[in-house]
Amino acid sequence: MNPILEIKNLHAGIGGKEILKGLNLTVNPGEVHAIMGPNGTGKSTLANIITGREGYEVTEGEIIFKAKDILSLDPEERALEGIFLGFQYPVEIPGVSMTNFMKAAIDAKRKYKGLDPIKPGEFLKMMREKQALVDIPDKIKNRSVNEGFSGGEKKKNEIFQMAMLDPDLAILDETDSGLDIDALRSVAEGVNKLRSKDNAFIVITHYQRLLDYIVPDIVHIMYDGKIVKSGDKELALELEEKGYKLVE
């Protein structure tokens, strides 16, 4: 079995400052990985680099996704290949309705696979189904992307989009931050329903609590641009108890 994602000795930074300092990570189909680590250690940077955000320099190492080196691909190509990022800070896009945005995304994906644009009826049905999955209000469909959404709604909206796009690898960057307990549960349920033997998740979080709902196969502790310790879900509990002196 080939891994979905394989990162080898990744060194990367921004503006001449090295942030990732030799990071290794292998994610296999069907797995859920959790990444924990102190503020500013490079978790979001890692997510950005996997998804191809411009402005970073990769100085060493490789990122293999589904047996392909993706470092030279544009963000949209990586997305179309099946990588999804749930943003730590979802962006507001005034004037672009959720419906139009999702329609454009679904059609881009279909085009990539050589399919015609989705039929309006089919699209609406799909929207309804996925909305129910994460329990977001119907009214957001007509609103501009993330505009005026509450913090929790924004995070749920990321999961909704993930459900719509059905990626092979989803990276969820602090999707649990700012969620109340019910929202947390419904986000986790959404993720659990989407888990399958073919896809994989990387869940970035500061709180062990989320991992009670989304049970990870492997927990990594990231520190100063590297993964310094990996273990099973007990590692998260241990970290909660001892703090980062566990790895210092």
Partner: peptide
């Protein structure tokens, strides 16, 4: 916003 949109597969 540009990156956000592209991350959803839109050119």
């Amino acid at each position: 916003a540009l990156f956000y949109i592209r991350q959803r597969g839109i050119s």
